[in-house]
């Protein structure tokens, strides 16, 4: 029983991190109708910027204050993501207003390759470290109740907490602020939003910036766990079944979807994996998402699309 609870908790915490990446997809889709395939590349780009700026700032400060170097690096990386947002709007989206969803998706595929290439050219392709003081050693709990206790990874716990706070803030931003409402209006209909005076170009820069900041936070957390290297782009692939499951337009969907996928893949690897040779957790997440789609094609919380003809 103790092992089951441990796996469950591990899955929930991993799921919270998937939610964070999934949120980037949801934000952009909700506000611009674009399925942003470049979200993983944005995570890599932001993490690379953070790691290298921190390294450079720390060296410039004589290695005395890692905290200050990290703060400088965070703002530096934030500026880099602002530049990315501006460039995406100026050179890609502005030319593609009112185009088909498939066209916009292909454009984000192009952005993926550009961000991956430019990121590694500017910042390097080695493994870089982000040291934000996350604890690495585990803690044992409930040792009197379960043999061997329940192992909790402090780093995962803190990461899940940060992800939860960010998700809460973004929900408030979307629901309660005028900019959030404008973003939702643009998502519903570009032309109608423009006709009532919403500045489309500025809105797109804002939403890509917000997605960039989410990518930066995800990049810091994942980079601190795994090291900053190219494989961070694959983290986005972990979030795909989450958005399929949760629905592309729902912030709560990203959270619940993340938790279901996180728990599902860990339990499947531990309990079903040994029966079929193991290594199943990645594809099992997609199978799980597809099973849900059979019953709810719009995802758990997605909006049902009704087209009148």
């Amino acid at each position: 029983m103790g092992f089951f609870i441990e796996t469950l908790i591990g899955g929930l915490m991993a799921g919270m991190l998937y939610s964070l990446v999934a949120l980037g997809f949801v934000l952009i889709f909700k506000s611009s109708g674009v399925f942003n395939f470049a979200q993983g590349a944005m995570v890599l780009f932001a993490a690379l910027a953070m790691a290298r700026f921190s390294e450079w700032a720390n060296a410039a400060l004589g290695g005395d204050s890692l905290l200050l170097a990290n703060v400088i690096a965070f703002f530096g990386a934030g500026l880099a993501m602002l530049f990315v947002a501006w460039a995406v709007e100026r050179f890609v989206l502005r030319k593609l207003v009112n185009q088909e969803g498939a066209t916009l998706l292909m454009a984000t595929l192009g952005i993926t390759y550009i961000l991956e290439g430019v990121g590694q050219t500017l910042f390097g392709s080695e493994i870089y470290n982000i040291d934000v003081g996350m604890p690495k050693e585990p803690v044992m709990m409930f040792e009197s109740m379960f043999e061997g206790g329940i192992l909790i990874n402090k780093e995962d716990f803190i990461a899940a907490l940060i992800a939860a706070i960010l998700v809460g803030l973004l929900t408030l931003f979307f629901q309660k602020t005028p900019v959030g409402r404008a973003l939702r209006a643009v998502a519903d209909d570009h032309q109608a939003a423009q006709s009532i005076g919403i500045p489309l170009n500025r809105i797109w820069v804002i939403v890509w910036l917000v997605a960039g900041i989410v990518a930066l936070v995800a990049g810091i957390i994942w980079g601190s766990k795994l090291g900053v290297q190219f494989s961070l782009t694959t983290v986005a692939l972990r979030a795909l079944p989450v958005v399929i499951l949760g629905g592309l337009t729902s912030v709560p969907g990203a959270i619940v979807g993340g938790l279901i996928i996180g728990v599902g893949e860990k339990l499947s690897e531990v309990y079903i994996g040994p029966m079929v040779g193991g290594g199943i957790e990645i594809w099992f997440a997609y199978v799980l998402a597809l099973v849900f789609l059979l019953f709810r094609p719009q995802g758990l919380f997605g909006e049902k699309i009704i087209n009148r003809v």
Binding site: T7, S231, V235, G273, G279, I282
Partner: peptide
């Protein structure tokens, strides 16, 4: 035998086992 899928960034379940 404990296989890890490419590229190997997700190993939590493996190490819990």
């Amino acid at each position: 035998l404990l296989p890890v899928a490419h590229p190997g960034v997700e190993q939590k379940a493996t190490w819990l086992q």
